[in-house]
Simulated assay, not measured.
Amino acid sequence: MSLYRNIVWFLKGMREYTRDGYEAAHKHFVEKDLETSVAGRSFIITGANSGIGKATAMAIAKKGGTVHLVCRNKDRAEEAREDIIKDTGNREVYVHILDMSETRKVWQFAEEFKRTNTSLNVLINNAGCMVNQKELNVEGLEKNFATNTLGMYILTTSLIPLLEKSCDPRVITVSSGGMLVQKLRTEDLQSERGHFDGTMVYAQNKRQQVVLTQEWAKAHPSIHFSVMHPGWADTPAVAMAMPQFYQTMAGRLRTAEQGADTAIWLAVSPAATSTPSGQFYQDRKAVPVHLPLAWTQSTPQEVQTFMTKLDALAKSFQPA
Rank of each mutant, 00 (worst) to 15 (best):
G21T: 02
S191T: 12
T305M: 15
W265E: 05
P270L: 10
N144T: 12
V201I: 12
F10G: 13
K27N: 13
S176A: 03
L291K: 06
E23W: 11
C129L: 14
H96E: 03
P221Y: 02
G177H: 07
A39G: 04
E112D: 15
R15K: 15
K12H: 15
V122T: 08
T66Q: 05
A127K: 04
M179L: 15
Q204R: 11
K165C: 10
V106A: 01
K183S: 04
I7W: 05
I45A: 00
T299N: 05
F317E: 07
G278A: 02
F196Y: 12
A237T: 15
V201H: 10
Q247D: 11
R91L: 12
R207I: 06
A127I: 05
M200S: 14
E102K: 12
P161C: 08
H290G: 08
M14N: 11
M240G: 13
L120P: 06
G198K: 04
D283T: 05
L141S: 03
N90Q: 04
V131T: 12
P276W: 02
S269W: 05
K74V: 09
G53W: 09
Y94L: 11
A146W: 06
N125P: 06
M228G: 01
G13T: 08
G198W: 07
E192C: 15
L155V: 03
N126I: 02
V93N: 02
I85M: 08
E187W: 11
I160P: 08
K114H: 11
R284V: 07
M179I: 07
S277R: 00
E111F: 11
T56W: 03
V201Y: 07
F109G: 08
G65D: 02
T199C: 13
V38R: 01
V38I: 07
L34A: 06
R284H: 08
T305R: 12
Q279A: 14
R72K: 10
L155M: 08
G151A: 07
V8G: 10
S274Y: 06
E187V: 13
T118K: 15
A272W: 02
L291R: 03
L310T: 13
K62P: 03
V131M: 12
V289R: 02
D99W: 14
E111C: 09
H220V: 00
W216L: 00
L11G: 13
A127D: 12
A203T: 11
V287A: 05
P276L: 03
L162S: 02
Y281G: 04
E192L: 15
D234H: 07
E31S: 14
R104E: 12
K183I: 03
Q244G: 06
A217V: 00
E215H: 06
W295T: 13
F245N: 05
E16G: 09
W265R: 07
T66V: 06
D234G: 08
A24Y: 08
E215Y: 06
V201L: 08
S316C: 04
Q282K: 14
M179G: 11
A48E: 04
F10T: 14
F225M: 00
L34P: 10
V227P: 03
A239V: 06
Q133E: 15
A263Q: 00
N137T: 15
Q209R: 02
R15W: 11
L155D: 01
T296W: 10
W107Y: 13
P270R: 13
